[in-house]
Design a protein around this nucleic acid. Structure first.
Lengths: 192, 192, 192, 192
DNA sequence: TATGAATGAGTCTTCATTCAT
DNA sequence: AATGAATGAAGACTCATTCAT
């Protein structure tokens, strides 16, 4: 009844953890096989090769990340600050549902092994947030920095904070999240 | 009379560029040798092995980064905001003097190949900024977030911005720097 | 009431084609399964393993080749030249009834995977023709060359000609066959 | 002083023997390395990969074979039968100077791993003999068979005879060679 | 009986490292 | 001191074979 075979799922999550922890190159296929409790050859029944595996993993998570952000924003039309709140909430939701996934995305988004398709998926994510910022700048509520700088500040901070949480240098509380959200809003918004 | 032999320097800078661009695992010793215009065996006269090489490279640049930050702060006692300005300036100076070095530090700071010593060097860097933030919190000018969150926001943003610059997604101007500094100050400081 | 199951036949003929075309090692069991329109596991119901498969295939075709040659010769007692004609005809008949089989035999007759039994089957084939040549030498109509040399000339030529035909470098006509038969007879027979 | 490094030669001759004996697919790189008394990695200093190795081996020997045949023919203008004698002598010389090489060429000339260049080299060899046959047909001394059939008979026989010799089914004597030459001439020439 | 998902032994190939020159 | 040829351990990947269904 499962649409995705159970072994494929095991390979996927083992990969995610290992790639996030050690990086693409330092992760060996036998490692993945062992962690997924699967024979080494089995991986190749589901993925053409190691590169296919990272790329599928990357795209799936980037797309889901984008979904989380979009879905928060889609169903309402309050003020811009609320919009930001929903985006932030989407990011938080994603990280909660997919531990390590953000770290994986961060450390692999520049990899030479990424296909054009993977790069485009990431680009779409960036584009979405850019559009949101552009709108904010038009409304005069977002700082007059290049969009890429705004993205870098938002994502750079958020990812680093989450890496700290996942490495237990920081503990995940509502208070922390609220604080970080406010801090980032301050970083991005025009001071009144 | 040169303390550091010229070949060693060549190996060092070739390594930095390659590690920053491709990562530790994807960089081969022959690659380094070729870019440094040196025989492959020569590297081993100056470094015990590949791990020694990254670690020495990492420590040297982390230490220099710390120096840049410290030196800005050391010779004055103006207000706290000025202190932050000096730190930021130190960070900028470092990236200007050592192109790619910040990218290298960022992408390698979680590497499994880092020795305890390297980790401590990085820790010292973090510690220094933490101390600065703690002081600011005592003075009531810095947000009441965990120090590690503050660090994550400062470094995460800054490194991401610099990666964008080095990949030509953003062009380095004084205006940009001023803007980013203000943004980060807003992120870290208590709103009045 | 079929003595040989239909699936086994499918496996046999798929194997023959693939082995002839690509060789034993370059042919994979999944390939055979696919071409035979059979599950990979099914092959193992009929053959112990890949080596069994080639060996059975080899023996069956070598034996049938021998039969073709023998049957031509058996039922008559005309002159020696007629005997040669019947042998040649038998060889032609075999290649017509079993396309690719001669190519398969040729390219696999030295394989390390052949069992003693397979080698003996091939030996028996050779022996039969040797006997025929020995008789001819006794009668003074066949050249005084070592039997193995005569075999080499007859089989070597014939197989090469058939390979050319099967690869479309040569088209199969009665004229060609007559010409080749005459040529080979000239090669083997004592010139008057 | 050696133009070709000694290790490369060792790899070459070990390869030739193994490929001739077992075939391309059944020969492993470690096997070659061991027989050449060389580390496995060393092979890759001299040859890009296994396919490069066979192809270089193939081309070199095919070219040398052609040379042997051509050189015999080049420096004289006696009768056509003498020309054939020189070709045959060239073939014999080649097999003497390069044991196993002819077997290697024979069993690998249809390989899927051969590059276009290798195929062309083989084609050139065939072409040369074809031209010789065509000339003979014009003079009315060679049978009126398709050139490819003549080639198949000449090469098929010769290669098979040599395989027998190298497998000790036949012992190499002048008498044998003279006998085979006469036999093949009878196969190819128009009977008077 | 038939299947094909799963396995892991065995390939080719790369690359950190050594060492004779 | 400097080199780069040589090595072999280790990684990605294939495929004969098994076995639960």
């Amino acid at each position: 009844m499962e649409s995705t075979p159970t072994k494929q799922k095991a390979i996927f999550s083992a990969s995610l953890l290992l790639f996030a922890e050690r990086g693409f190159d330092a992760t060996t296929m036998p490692m993945i096989a062992e962690n997924a409790k699967v024979g080494a050859g089995t991986i190749y029944r589901y993925f053409k090769n190691k590169e296919s595996l990272v790329n599928e993993l990357f795209q799936q998570h980037v797309n889901e990340f984008l979904q989380c952000i979009e879905s928060g924003l889609a169903n309402e039309r309050d003020g811009y600050r609320d919009g930001f709140h929903h985006i932030f909430e989407g990011m938080v939701t994603f990280t909660k549902n997919h531990p390590r996934a953000l770290g994986f995305i961060k450390t692999h988004s520049q990899g030479a092994f990424l296909t054009e398709e993977s790069r485009l998926a990431y680009q779409k994510l960036v584009e979405f947030v850019c559009t949101f910022f552009r709108e904010g700048q038009k409304q005069g509520v977002i700082r007059n920095l290049p969009e890429n700088a705004l993205i870098a500040i938002l994502f750079g901070s958020f990812m680093e904070v989450y890496e700290m949480i996942e490495n237990n240098y920081l503990s995940l509380t509502d208070e922390l999240l609220t604080g970080v959200e406010e801090s980032l809003w301050a970083a991005l918004s025009r001071q009144s």
